[in-house]
């Protein structure tokens, strides 16, 4: 399998891995958002808790979720390796004055994907600890819905989103994710070689809409709950 490891460690192979895992995570965000939107129902968390139960018990989803964990780790590790290699390629002496212009993306986002990714990674660790780990460890109370017992994740979420600090943290993180996506979305297509004079403009538009709308909706949830619970 020498050719295959060569491929995976080549510059384009590494980029391909970033692209494919990134695209998967982009898809996952939609699924995740659909679930989170259940939080907006004024049903004291019934729909949300049932959704969480479904996601953690339905076998095909469980299988995919292991893939998801793996892809997050691969995307992060590979990204970190690329970042290190690229810094090394730049060499020890930096420019005294450096202007980075870009033609097809946001230059600032594009040249700081490593930093943006790092912030997102920190966010993820905290986020997973707060909710996912609590759920997995069975540390949550159960609630009965029509004879089905479901962990009451809703209450934990609600409590978190009553904390101003966490709300700010979540909203800021969503902005960071937005920038990461602004570049990452169309970039993953370019890496796959999917560049076409007719279709690329469309991909770019979808990417921009996506990277604004999805994080905005994610950010809306803690804000909504915060203000709702604050009675505003």
């Amino acid at each position: 399998m020498n050719w295959f490891t060569n491929f995976l460690t080549s510059s384009i192979g590494r980029k391909l891995i970033m692209s494919l895992t990134g695209l998967f995570l982009i898809l996952f965000l939609v699924v995740h958002l659909i679930g989170n939107l259940q939080l907006l129902y004024s049903d004291e968390g019934e729909k949300f808790n049932l959704y969480a139960l479904f996601m953690t018990t339905f076998t095909p989803i469980k299988i995919i979720s292991y893939g998801l964990y793996a892809f997050i780790v691969i995307h992060a590790v590979q990204g970190w390796i690329l970042w290190r290699k690229n810094v090394a390629a730049r060499g020890p002496q930096g420019y005294a004055v450096k202007v980075t212009r870009a033609t097809g993306t946001n230059a600032r986002a594009a040249s700081n994907m490593g930093w943006l990714g790092t912030i997102i990674f920190v966010f993820l660790v905290i986020h997973l600890y707060q909710f996912w780990l609590q759920m997995k460890m069975g540390a949550l109370e159960s609630k009965m819905y029509d004879g089905v017992a479901a962990a009451d994740l809703y209450t934990v979420v609600k409590a978190t989103y009553m904390n101003t600090g966490f709300v700010v943290f979540y909203v800021v993180s969503m902005v960071v994710i937005g920038f990461h996506l602004w570049h990452g979305f169309q970039s993953s297509f370019q890496t796959l070689g999917l560049n076409h004079r007719k279709y690329t403009p469309l991909i770019k538009i979808i990417g921009k809409v996506y990277s604004v709308v999805i994080p905005a909706l994610f950010a809306l949830i803690p804000l909504y709950m915060y203000f709702k619970n604050a009675g505003l």
Binding site: S11, K15, K85, T100, G104, T105, A110, H183, S187, Q190
Partner: peptide, 9 residues
């Protein structure tokens, strides 16, 4: 050389 992040600089 480094690896492309599609910065387009």
């Amino acid at each position: 050389f480094g690896m492309c992040s599609n910065v387009t600089a």
